[in-house]
């Protein structure tokens, strides 16, 4: 298989997985108190956003630029 296809597939599958798991972790931790946990929640949210971005990039929705001539 083409290496480029492989890495994109891993990015899509892994990205979906990471996005779901971090969203789930965020949901489980939603009511934890304390300064550290508040920061963790923000971080988990951004992590989920990043995973979604990586998925979309893997799918070619984002960052899909025409090759320079």
């Amino acid at each position: 298989m083409d290496f480029a296809v492989l890495e994109r597939s891993v990015a899509v599958v892994g990205g979906v997985l990471v996005a779901f798991v971090s969203a789930y972790a965020l949901y489980k931790d939603w009511k934890t108190p304390g300064l550290d946990n508040q920061v963790f929640k923000v971080m988990l949210f951004l992590l989920a956003v990043g995973a979604v971005l990586a998925t979309l990039a893997g799918l070619g929705v984002l960052g899909n630029f025409p090759k320079a001539a």
Binding site: G14, A51, A54, G63
Partner: peptide, 25 residues
């Protein structure tokens, strides 16, 4: 200069983001 390769970067990003999840757990 060509555009950066999005595909590999997406793969590598998922590796790093995955490590964030494992660290959380």
């Amino acid at each position: 200069i060509n555009r950066l390769d999005v595909g590999f970067a997406a793969f590598n990003s998922v590796v790093l983001f995955g490590s964030g999840v494992t660290m959380h757990y």
